[in-house]
Design a protein around this nucleic acid. Sequence first.
RNA 1: GUGCCCGUAGCUCAAUGGAUAGAGCAUCAGCCUUCUAAGCUGAGGGUUACUGGUUCGAGUCCAGUCGGGCGCACCA
Length: 551
Amino acid sequence: MQEFLLPVIKSALQSAAIETDKPVQIEKPTDKKNGDFSTNIALLLSKECRRNPRELAAELIGQMIFPDGTVERIEIAGPGFINFYLTPLFIMQSVEHILLEGKGYGSSCAGKGRTAIVEYVSANPTGPLTIGRGRGGVLGDCIANLLETQGYSLTREYYFNDAGRQMQILGESVRYRYMERCGRDIVFPDSHYQGEYIREIAEILFHEHESSLIDSDDPGIFKDTAESIIFSSIKKTLARIDIRHDSFFNEHTLYIAEENGKSANDRVLELLESKGFIDRYEGATWFLTTKLGQEKDKVLVKSSGEPSYRLPDIAYHLDKYRRKFDLIVNVFGADHIDEYPDVLEALRILGHDTSKMRVAINQFVTTTVDGETVKMSTRKGNADLLDELIDDVGADATRLFFIMRSKDSHLNFDIELAKKQSKDNPVFYLQYAHARICSLLRIAAEEVGFKPDGSGAHLLQRLSLEPEIQLGFTLLDYPEVIRTAIRLLEPQKMVEYLHSVAEQYHKFYQECPILKADPDIRTARLFLSLATRQVLRNGFTILGISAPESM
RNA sequence: GUGCCCGUAGCUCAAUGGAUAGAGCAUCAGCCUUCUAAGCUGAGGGUUACUGGUUCGAGUCCAGUCGGGCGCACCA
């Protein structure tokens, strides 16, 4: 929206014979009194021009030439801000474009012809998904949705490992429960998976094979069965909140030798060694991160001969580079905070452009039940399963609550609040605005034969009341909000914005009669409602929440 | 001990280095013969944890202090 001011200001600088490398910043003041848009350019330049900022502002304004009918007035304010006030006509003409663009409003071609990969969830199939994983999952999914609006060709990837030690323990855990089910007297080890789901898997095996597996030559059946059941349950849980991946990358493949006899892991070692960043001592193979100023070297191959998790991690990201993505986004929880700097360093050493890679880290989740905070614990298996949360509060609330706080903040998930079917619950506030518009449009169609076909959209220009202009102006922010959310990898910005759209609409609805207004004004207000609904819908699509037609 | 994140209204949280720090909930006072009151309007509520620094300007950046969270394995 504010783009049209940029060339105006730049050419004014030129006319005033000011050359600078300072960027021209146009912002939207928080207080409406300070204009629809404002620039601090005079403040920024006053020093290098050695001139009073207000005086400089006055000269710049004198040089500005605006497109016809866009700017109503300009002010110099405070220490030297230049504030722009738009004409209602210009705002409403712009709102008309929202209707023309429809579903595509907010989209752009910024990512056209470019590829991106977003990796998220990536839980190993050792057990059901926890609430903590859910936050990262929704965060990743929304980031992917955001990127899609910019035309990126997108891959949603899930990285997992069905080979390592944890999976072995999983298989053994099932075996123990199976023996138990067969009536054997066993002691279940503390170090193994305690969850009820292990018993359920054992029960399934018992149901199919009865006791015939007790002396089986193939202990792998316990692991394999557990893996396939758990993985499909994870996918099912994710699907309930509309998270679907289109690529599953198995870490295990990085261990397997290719035709030349070398695995992806081997190649990483060779490459790092050729750069002089590998050494062997104490029986292990080390990544010499001390050369990069870190306190300790990091083990890549343990003295047992097995790679540590760092090696396949590097190999995996090398593979992402091999697949030539233009943008690589990784989403994970705060517990992995120390993991990625090493990966990044390795990639940099191997000559890759690490600015392509971005990491979104989400802080942890605590749940509040009856005002009491319950800390997350994977071991205990209490109320921290994502599935149970979805049962409890529904898919929409689950998704929205996970992203309505900044990812850097610890999330306090208030279960009671999420369950409430009332205005306290932010999910309902947003959805109610949408339902209200749908209801209004239904009545308008029946009673006055309103058709949302755009034929009367030009009447929008007739609107000039404060709530109408405010709402329209807010709607025009949408594309900028998407860009900001992407820049910060922060879908929370979208939640906040949509809340303000809903708020503006309710205010408009309250203060401006729609169906009872004169025909032209009525039509115009109905089109404004349509535009609002479009923005809400587009935003809901990115957040992955439903847009109910009635409530 | 150390690396990262956080500390803002009674509670949950906002605020690309900008102007008088904002919402929601809670509290109090108003608005339905009228398109969904699941809504709207208004009021009270703050030394932005603390101390310095950087500059035209700091909740935001820098240094330190204090508090809370998460990591710091030849586990992933």
